[in-house]
Write a protein that binds this DNA or RNA. Structure first.
Length: 821
DNA sequence: GCACCTCGAGTTCC
DNA sequence: CTCGAGGTGC
């Protein structure tokens, strides 16, 4: 993203003085270049620096820094020149305001200069108040005068254009250029379908329309995806992509780029009776078939501006395109004329920005984190930057491939992006700023010397997988701690007060080695642990009162641990942290098999017949329980009276799943396909007599299949699996309730998706009630969704529902459905 | 065998 | 919230 130099020399992103890293100076906080105290040298340096970036952007079409950064330098120079006018030279970028047009595009002299708008850098409501106050002062309005009317609009993050219509026909499109002269990009602009080549109901001799070309975010993503597939370089953001497309020399390439346009004003006009207000003009332009953003209004007084600013801030992330702020214009043209201009900026308009969503910073280091499953994740440790409203110090690099694709190295200057609630991400490296002594391309194995940074076990990356993993399992303290944290989590055993910090101490000081140990902790253990932890951290000896607080804390924690002893079976299963077993799969296991005892002894083949459990998941579960250590941990839990409170008989529907044909197929014997299993079962084949099937004197299956079964059975573990399967089948059948499946409830077969905040119940409650009525609750909207239940602040799921035509109901609608039964 | 739908897992900051 | 991958239905 390069600054809109043409338009807004004042266009700084309103970044607090976090300071920015210098080229080759990996320390943020120190301004780059000569000491700001020496203003002569400083100004010379700024000029050179800015001219260099201009050249990179406008002539080489290869931006070197993000616009917030450019603006910061520009503003610094402008301020210097203001206080020391003798520093102003003709070659100063502040005097030119723009760059050279590319030689390949014909220059266009604008009939009416394209001016810039002053930017209000106070990103709070104060910015709006200040503007209103300024305007009222200029108009000499007293405090009792009625509030002014303003046209409030979005400030699009794109490229400004002047469209010239003569007699209603588009004859020329030009970029802003330096404001006086731009580039003729008519051929390219003609390819944008949104821009009418002929105006509806207007044949004025001259009508110039001004607006912004931009690219929608979704279109940008898709285009970048294609670029990457073709092995071509991806664009950093929609703005760059749009600017690049408009400045394509080959308009057939522009035609393939998904550009959009919004009109926001007028240029030269002849023979057209313009309305007397800005909002009226926009309405008129819309009526002529020009795209005009709907997100605009006539705001009344300062309060109206503040309200609009807040409103747009709230919807900013849901807009399909990027904006960097809003624009306020005095609505009445008569008043605009009275206000006039200061130098090259109108006094009647201001751009009011939001905190920048992109910033530059330096990568101090690349750390590797160990996840619960042993996944090794590279994390960029950043010089703190204020971006998108928060200070960011860490950003995930996901995995080795991703890190290398972006080629992030220690010491690099990177662009960090954070929009709304979105997790900060490293968008890309500013290669121009890579220092001589930057690190090498990231190499996980080399970096860790083949060892887990926490436990030293060797690390491994499976063929075809993106992740490196620590092989230490629960030997690895990082994995153990997270396993315990997972176990204690709210959606699992829900042990309140057992946060990461305490787990860290409990494990490090040796009080807890595995989850079962939690239930053997005593008051003394906890107090001792706390004392030792405090001592280690150098915290002053306890006062009597502190001792009391510590006791209270320990009592509470013990109580919470005690209270967690009898969870629903599915929660306990989820809490164990078996790979591929999340909330839903845990529920499936509990619903179908009913008792922990069955689940912990089920062979993979049995698990495979359950819905939504395939080879990978079945094996992960069986493997977990095959581990001696895990079975011991379970036994210890049981011994400590940790027991699911809702064990029950297996689900009646399991009877069908236990049919011989299904179980035979679930053994996954080579060549013994599902169809063959069914045929064999019809002829009386059963797992209990698999040996017979494999014998040469039977002809239930073709010879080659028979041989395959025999070979398979020859392996001991396979035979044991068959035995286990048969035993479990018998046990389960014996426990199955008589008769058919129970009544399924009113909402059987219906799938719900919950989104937003419901007025009177939590989402968990809503989910529980839907499930109690036999319905399903899913996390994502698709064609199969029956209803989307939307509350306050519903987000993308609601949008998706509308796209797919899925009915949307509110809480009241849901209650009605629930009560109908 | 492919396309679509889900689920699991990881992630940042206050 | 998003991405990747597992599972299922066509």
């Amino acid at each position: 993203m390069q600054p809109d130099l043409f338009s807004s020399p004042e266009d700084a992103a309103g970044v607090p003085a976090a300071g920015s890293p210098a080229a080759g100076t990996p320390a943020a906080g120190t301004p780059p270049g000569p000491d700001p105290g020496n203003w002569q040298e400083r100004a010379a340096w700024l000029k050179a620096e800015l001219n260099r970036h201009n050249h990179a952007y406008y002539v080489l079409d290869n931006p070197s820094i993000p616009d917030a950064e450019y603006d910061k330098l520009f503003r610094e120079l402008a301020t210097l020149e203001q206080t020391h006018p003798d520093l102003i030279t003709p070659d100063s970028p502040t005097q030119r305001v723009g760059g050279k047009p590319l030689p390949q595009f014909a220059p266009v002299r604008h009939a009416l200069p394209m001016l810039s708008i002053r930017t209000e850098t106070d990103t709070t409501a104060g910015g709006a108040l200040a503007f209103d106050a300024r305007v009222r002062r200029e108009l000499e309005l007293g405090p009792d005068a009625p509030p002014l009317q303003y046209a409030a609009e979005l400030k699009f993050d794109g490229l400004a254009l002047n469209l010239r219509y003569e007699n209603g026909v588009l004859v020329q499109a030009a970029t802003r250029g330096d404001g006086a002269t731009g580039e003729d990009v008519t051929q390219n602009i003609r390819t944008i379908r949104q821009i009418p080549l002929r105006l509806k109901g207007c044949d004025a001799p001259v009508l110039e329309v001004r607006g912004e070309v931009y690219m929608r975010r979704d279109a940008f993503e898709r285009m970048n995806e294609r670029q990457r597939e073709k092995g071509e370089k991806a664009f950093v953001n929609p703005r760059n992509a749009a600017a690049g497309a408009v400045r394509q020399l080959d308009s057939s390439i522009t035609a393939q780029r998904p550009l959009s346009f919004f009109a926001y004003g007028l240029g030269a006009v002849q023979g057209w009776d313009a309305p007397d207000s800005h909002s009226g003009t926009l309405d008129a332009l819309a009526a002529m078939g020009l795209p005009v953003s709907e997100e605009r209004r006539v705001a009344v007084g300062a309060a109206g501006l503040v309200e609009f600013h807040a409103h747009v801030a709230a919807i900013r992330d849901t807009l399909p395109f990027d904006i960097d702020g809003v624009v306020y214009k005095v609505n009445s043209y008569a008043l605009q004329r009275r206000l006039g201009f200061v130098s090259r900026e109108p006094r009647w308009a201001v751009a009011h920005k939001y905190p920048a969503q992109e910033q530059m910073t330096v990568v101090r280091d690349i750390d590797v984190q160990v996840g619960r499953t042993g996944k090794l994740t590279p994390v960029a440790k950043l010089e703190p930057v204020f971006v998108g409203g928060v200070t960011v110090t860490n950003a995930t690099l996901h995995n080795e491939d991703e890190t290398r694709r972006k080629d992030v190295r220690v010491g690099d200057t990177v662009i960090v992006r954070r929009a709304g609630d979105v997790i900060p991400e490293v968008v890309g490296v500013v290669l121009e700023r890579r220092p001589q002594d930057a690190g090498q391309p990231f190499d996980m194995f080399q970096r860790l010397q083949g060892k887990c940074p926490v436990c030293g076990s060797h690390i491994d990356r499976e063929q075809g997988e993106a992740d490196w993993r620590c092989t230490g399992g629960l030997v690895c303290a990082a994995q153990r701690k997270q396993a315990i944290a997972h176990f204690a989590g709210r959606r699992m055993m829900d042990i309140e007060g057992l946060g990461d910090r305490y787990i860290e101490n409990l494990v490090d000081l040796g009080y807890v080695h595995s989850i079962a140990d939690l239930y053997r902790l005593t008051l003394d253990d906890l107090l001792e642990m706390k004392r030792r932890a405090d001592e280690r951290d150098g915290i002053t000896p306890e006062t009597v009162q502190k001792g009391k607080i510590a006791t209270k804390w320990a009592e509470n924690l013990l109580a919470a641990i005690g209270a967690s002893k009898n969870p629903p079976l599915e929660r306990l299963l989820f809490a164990l942290g078996i790979r591929h077993v999340g909330e839903t799969t845990a529920k499936t296991l509990a619903d179908w098999l009913g008792r922990l005892d069955h689940i912990r002894h089920a062979p993979a083949a049995l698990l495979r017949v359950l819905p939504d459990i395939g080879d990978t998941v079945a094996e992960a579960i069986a493997e977990f329980f095959a581990e001696e250590r895990n079975q011991q941990a379970l036994d210890k839990l049981l011994a400590a009276n940790v027991k699911p409170r809702d064990e029950r008989a297996p689900n009646a529907k399991l009877r069908d799943k236990l049919a011989q044909a299904s179980l035979l197929a679930a053994l996954r014997i080579p060549k013994f396909t599902e169809t063959r299993c069914r045929q064999a079962a019809e002829k009386g084949a059963v797992i209990a007599a698999l040996d017979e099937l494999a014998r040469s004197d039977t002809i239930v299956v073709p010879n080659n299949v028979r041989e395959s079964i025999a070979a398979w059975l020859a392996e001991d573990r396979h035979r044991r699996q068959v035995d286990a399967l048969e035993r479990m089948r018998a046990t389960l059948l014996a426990e199955l309730p008589e008769g058919g499946a129970a009544d399924e409830g009113r909402l059987a077969g219906k799938t719900f998706v919950l989104t937003g905040t419901l007025p009177n119940m939590t989402r968990d409650e809503a989910q529980a009630r839907i499930e109690a009525a036999g319905g399903k609750v899913s996390g994502s909207v698709s064609k199969k969704t029956t209803y989307v239940v939307a509350g306050e602040e519903a987000g993308s799921k609601l949008t998706k529902a509308q796209e797919l035509g899925v009915p949307v109901i509110d809480e009241a609608g849901l209650l009605r459905l629930l009560e109908e039964q």
